[in-house]
Amino acid sequence: MPAEAPTRITLETPADRAFHPVVRLVLGGVADRLNLGFEELDDLQLAVERLLAEAGAQGTVKISVEVLDQGIRARVGPLKERTIADALQGPEAAPGELTLRRILETVVDSFGVEEATDGELVVRLDKAVRGT
């Protein structure tokens, strides 16, 4: 990917689940250009979908997909409730507990909660490209 090429795609979509396939297609298109494995792409799509589900069914949600040197970074927001941010930043899930945090820990390499310039909370997801 040339340095001068655009490295970020930003998408604002209705939060309704009917539009999730559009988001998956965008993620897939970017992932293919990074040689992200099929299963890794599926993991990233799952992570984004879970966050979209937390964003609720009304209003809009923004997704940005950024090409990194060794992977892909997605940001999803705004989060509907601060409790979700607290849950993501809280203690690790105990063994045998299925939380949003545990799901994200499993399917992406790292994640974090960030405050956007407009003060809204977004979740950052990083997925590395493994050696080919």
């Binding site: 297609l25 298109g29 992932a31 293919d32 040689n35 494995g37 099929f38 080919t132």
Partner: peptide, 25 residues
């Protein structure tokens, strides 16, 4: 021994990654 990329699958099937992506969707 690893998960293939969309392009790998497309090459195998002599089609495009976009076609594979649409089929997955």
């Amino acid at each position: 021994g690893r998960s293939p990329t969309l392009s790998d699958v497309a090459d195998e099937l002599h089609t495009t990654p976009e076609h594979v992506l649409e089929a997955l969707e």
